[in-house]
């Protein structure tokens, strides 16, 4: 099948266009920081784009899963602080792996309950979805305060993941590199599941035409639950990584990402995981480059990026055909 590769050219074009505006070491630092931020954005947004694409559900409570993931990073890394000492990188990574796994499982489980109790009642009604998920976001924020308290909490990031190393004269943060590797790993797994498995085939078909998938004998509501749980779990993983990146966690850490996440899934094309990946990296790079050159324009630059992409491709970089 012919693949549309044109949007992929955007990444090298944006990156290389910035090179003359700064020194190479600064450019390399910002590029890796942007890629790392992009990977975390991808983790946080990929579930939402699938939920919207397949289920046509506008879940504004998605940020709550990110918040939960971030707080679980506080708890799990706090409990495993003995693993996070300066002696062993392997134990440092193991502590982070446990936090990521816990975040995925816990937010996935919460997602299953949320789908069953709240989302299932509002399928087909965007207005009700917006109202009820906004309400859910507020309730979740208050529950987090009840469980963890209202004060900002420090994430006990493993010691060897706090530092940085020099590469080509640029300081590269270890944690960001870990985020890049994890993001690529998750994208690779998501790509393989969506393109090489039967359940992935069903998800892609369901995003296009739910009714026909049912007419072929498949129960789409089971797919809905699976996708919603996977989306929540991915947001949880993103939350753990974002919490570790920010190092200080508040009850609004997920809400604050909502605008950026919606920009990412709109640029990528609603329902497209590949588009979400590409858009997340693009937004991450743009935020870092513009944040360095003209800090006040950082968020505005992403909105401008979205406008430019939509002028070029009104349904996003990788539009998914809907019937």
């Amino acid at each position: 099948m012919k693949r549309d590769l044109t949007p992929w050219l955007l990444l090298p074009i944006v990156a290389l266009a910035m090179l003359p505006l700064m020194s190479f070491s600064t450019w390399l630092t910002l590029t890796i920081a942007g890629a790392a931020m992009g990977m975390m954005l991808f983790l946080m947004a990929s579930g939402l784009t699938l939920v919207f694409g397949l289920m046509d559900v506008m879940n504004f409570a998605h940020g709550a899963f990110i918040t939960l993931g971030a707080y679980l990073a506080v708890t799990v890394l706090g409990r495993l602080s003995g693993w996070g000492g300066p002696d062993s990188l392997a134990w440092n990574l193991a502590a982070l792996a446990v936090a990521v796994t816990t975040g995925a499982i816990a937010t996935g489980a919460v997602g299953a309950v949320f789908e069953r109790v709240i989302i299932r009642r509002v399928y087909g009604s965007h207005l009700q979805q917006i109202l009820i998920t906004m309400g859910g976001l507020i309730v979740a924020g208050q529950l987090v305060i009840v469980l963890w308290g209202a004060q900002p909490l420090q994430v006990a990031k493993p010691v060897l993941l706090r530092g940085s190393f020099l590469l080509g004269g640029a300081a590269i943060e270890t944690y960001r590199l870990v985020a890049v590797v994890l993001g690529l790993l998750v994208f690779g797994i998501a790509y393989l599941v969506l393109n090489r498995t039967r359940i992935g085939l069903l998800v892609r078909a369901g995003v296009e035409n739910r009714e026909m998938v049912e007419a072929l004998g498949f129960r789409i509501e089971r797919l809905f639950v699976a996708v919603f749980v996977a989306g929540a779990a991915l947001a949880g993983i993103g939350g753990v990584m974002w919490g570790g990146y920010q190092e200080v966690v508040t009850a609004t850490i997920g809400d604050e990402m909502t605008v950026l996440i919606f920009i990412v899934i709109i640029i990528g094309g609603l329902g497209s995981v590949t588009g979400c990946f590409q858009a997340a990296v693009l937004v991450g790079l743009t935020t870092n480059y513009v944040g360095y050159l003209t800090p006040k324009l950082a968020l505005g630059s992403n909105i401008a990026l979205m406008v430019l992409v939509l002028l070029w491709r009104p349904r996003g970089l990788f539009p998914v055909a809907k019937q």
Binding site: L201, L202, V207
Partner: peptide, 12 residues
Amino acid sequence: FTGLTVRENLLL
């Protein structure tokens, strides 16, 4: 399913 290949349409 326009985004799927002919093979994938039949496989479903």
